[in-house]
Amino acid sequence: MADEGWQQQRGGAVVNEYTYPILLGITAGTGIRLLLLRTDYRQYPTYLHGKIIHLSLGLIAAALGTLAVPSIMEKEFTAVTFLTLAASQFREVRNMERNTLSELDSYELVPRGNTYIEGIAVAFESRNYLVIFTSFVVTFAYLAFNVWVALGCVVAAIITSKLLMHGATLKEIVTIENSPLYFEGAGLYIDQIYIMNIGLPERQKEILEYGMGFVLTPKNFNVRSTIANLGQRQAILHDVSVSLGVYRDSGTPALVPLIKRDLSDGRIGVFLLPQDNDIQRAIDVIGAVPVLENAIRMPSEKDNSK
């Protein structure tokens, strides 16, 4: 008798009205997470175990988003409270990313900087919310309409995620020009922007031989404060060093890529020491540096008309 009851229960649980919607919701959510887990020249998150962590968390997020729908339909409204649990769980993701990257940062020849790390951590957290949202919508569409509407929602979710997760890059907000480095006495300059004092003649020779200079001119007033942000500048130096290599070692503080600002017009002078002295490539890489959301300022939003 007990066996029969178990059989019945089991038979009921294997395929019921919610099974396929839940499966589709979880698959769609995890798929979105996989899609957003890109690896590019910045070499993050290529770390293999990091990938597994994020896929697993994506799966959990997808399950949470999906299961909320049947819970509501079964009038189990309190079940939605576990979404708050999810929120605290994914804040943990942000902490985890921040801690890992900060630990690694102290051993980089050209560090990422805290602003960049914070931006990456926030992106990781928000991607999990996108997964929850996708799974929720897809499952809901399946249950409320049919599988085709649900599949349509998957496509829409992919497109919105791509749009939402694609931030601006530097080439959209500044013009990038190559400009020669030169010394005036001991001072190193790029297009009249003072970079640093290099005393030793042999260091000066090295810098003129290996160094490259670029001037980034802001396209409008808002951009001035964005590129003045020290975190944004460090992000530029880090990304370029990752892509083009860097001519320095520990214990050579004089050979350090630097960015200084022209106070009068907001241009910044980028002094680089790449191992690959390809000017066009350097311009491309600088142009592809993400505009950090923490560095964006909108002074022009202040209403000036009185």
Partner: peptide
């Protein structure tokens, strides 16, 4: 002077600046 400055720069992990 330059020789000593270059050596001290390496030893002390500092930057040699010319005033």
């Amino acid at each position: 002077m330059e020789f000593i400055a270059a050596n001290l720069e390496a030893i002390l992990d500092g930057i040699a600046h010319r005033l």
